[in-house]
Design a protein around this nucleic acid. Structure first.
Lengths: 223, 223
DNA sequence: TATTGAGTTTTTGTATACAAACTGTTATAT
DNA sequence: ATATAACAGTTTGTATACAAAAACTCAATA
């Protein structure tokens, strides 16, 4: 795995906590490679906004409540637009892709509460694939790439762990509503359903993060 | 100037043409530095989407008509939202900043046609500052950073050069309409005026780039 | 003529060395 | 006790060397 992917994974999964200082040597040692590829990975991650650089070295970016709020607003705007455009531009192939994605999503949720063989990570991944299929159906590559940069914030990335059965089943129903609207080319219905879907996700996140703004106020150092 | 800024500038000003291959050695030689900082700059530029990497080396990204179309749709969506949010959230300070920006813009346009001492580059910069002030007034940092990535692409086509007196004066009036709506906290008026403003900009670009999709079909090599 | 493949050249990827910048500490003077 | 200067330690920034991968050349073969 590349240094970039390793570090990104570690940040998204909370192994590198917000505000944690990351020195090049620490990372080089951890990945058993030299500092050169580490530095290149850090430049990319900084351009993506997952780390912030200071006078000396970088830290894992800490997202405040305000950040999370803004990011959800942005994501709602973009994905809502994507859903409306998908309703307008979707091909038969897109419809099939979205349906297949959501069928898999449904099967995974059923299995999760039935046999427990499916993991929450797999459900998270399938949810992501459905959203991806919708965005692809919008036929706007640039919207796609911007959304993918908005979405990957550590807390949000892991927010599915907080969903209970009721909420997972509900999200499945909303997916179906979105799909139906896209199928019927009902732009506004698709947009509003997507807005509601994402804002509902935000409500869940905020229900669980009562005070992240202070939580990490101490500076976690390396090693 | 950093390698990153140098290369970005060269791309935006057309010195490195679309599809032009950029080898590390060529750039290192041109900037008279070693390949190490070049590589880091290229990683950042790739993350921003200004260059694309292939199996070996990178090329300056070529934007098709479809790209430009999509990018303007995206920018319209984002800046329209920012204008509406600015109408909702603007502080007295923001209002002042926006007014000052637009007054400078007006003075520059007047001077441009009056004495000719002001350059079109300066007008372009002041226009950019006004838009920036509006986006800042929206109080959403994340929207700001996404817009700033969208905005640079049309610069490649130096769209402003083609604005004649009529259009420059018109854009000034639209700015005033946007400002008035933001002042009166009329969200929808602000949003629609911004939409119109940006789509009008797109019309201008498309009027002048009749066939960029073929224009650069040949592969320009380094040196 | 088209194709394969060995050998050559070009270009990237990584490690390492060293200089430069920053940080923290201790000793000295006020 | 506080402030400052010098020094030592840490960490980054850049150059360079070399290995690895890709692209190219051209002759041998079908």
């Amino acid at each position: 795995m590349s240094a970039y992917k390793y570090i990104k994974h570690a940040i998204l999964h909370g192994e590198f906590a917000p505000k944690m200082r990351l020195t090049e040597e620490y990372l080089a040692n951890k990945l058993q490679i030299s500092r050169t590829p580490i530095r290149e990975a850090l430049k990319q991650l900084e351009a993506e906004g997952l780390i912030v650089s200071m006078k000396r070295g970088v830290r894992v970016r800490h997202f405040t409540k305000k950040d999370i709020h803004e990011i959800y607003d942005l994501r709602t705007l973009l994905e809502g637009y994507a859903a409306a455009q998908a309703a307008m531009n979707r091909t038969e192939f897109d419809l099939q892709e979205m349906n297949v994605s959501n069928d898999k999503y449904e099967a995974a949720i059923v299995d999760y509460f039935d046999t427990g063989k499916t993991t929450i990570e797999e459900i998270l991944d399938l949810n992501h694939r459905f959203h991806d299929a919708v965005i692809r159906a919008s036929q706007n590559q640039h919207v796609h790439s911007h959304i993918s940069k908005v979405v990957v914030v550590p807390l949000i990335f892991r927010s599915f762990y907080w969903f209970d059965e009721e909420q997972l089943r509900h999200s499945l129903e909303v997916h179906k509503t979105i799909l139906k609207a896209i199928e019927e080319q009902d732009l506004e219905r698709a947009r509003v359903a997507m807005h509601e879907h994402i804002y509902h996700g935000r409500d869940q996140v905020f229900k669980h993060i009562v005070d992240i703004d202070r939580q990490y106020s101490g500076t976690e150092e390396v090693q």
